[in-house]
């Protein structure tokens, strides 16, 4: 039995699940960001596996775009986090309740 598309899709689903679990369980904002990166990478793996399966390179183009968007998102997000830390002296989501009440 050789490698099939199913193997890669299951790996992708597992990685996405790990990222989603981290997103709801962790409290540090930077770790939440890393969990989002894990989920993006899981989606990329599925895209590239489908691209290999159909021998159409468009899937790799999608993955390429996702990487560029992730880079822009990381840059802006980390700048926001530096600013939040400067004002609140904390990066825990429990402390970031400025919109409460």
């Amino acid at each position: 039995m050789s490698l099939t598309l199913e193997h890669y899709l299951l790996l992708s689903a597992a990685l996405f699940t790990i990222g989603a679990v981290g997103l709801v369980t962790r409290r540090n904002v930077i770790v939440l960001f890393m969990c989002v990166e894990i989920m993006l990478n899981a989606a990329n793996l599925a895209l590239i596996a489908f691209s290999r399966f159909h021998l159409v390179a468009d899937g790799q183009m999608f993955a390429f775009t996702v990487m560029a968007v992730a880079a822009a998102e990381a840059g802006i997000g980390l700048a926001i986090m530096v600013n939040i830390f400067r004002h609140k002296k904390s990066l825990l989501v429990d402390d970031l309740n400025v919109f409460k009440n």
């Binding site: 050789s2 490698l3 598309l5 199913e6 899709l9 290999r52 399966f53």
Partner: peptide, 8 residues
Amino acid sequence: YRNATANF
């Protein structure tokens, strides 16, 4: 997905 178990 219809042929996920098909070989590459």
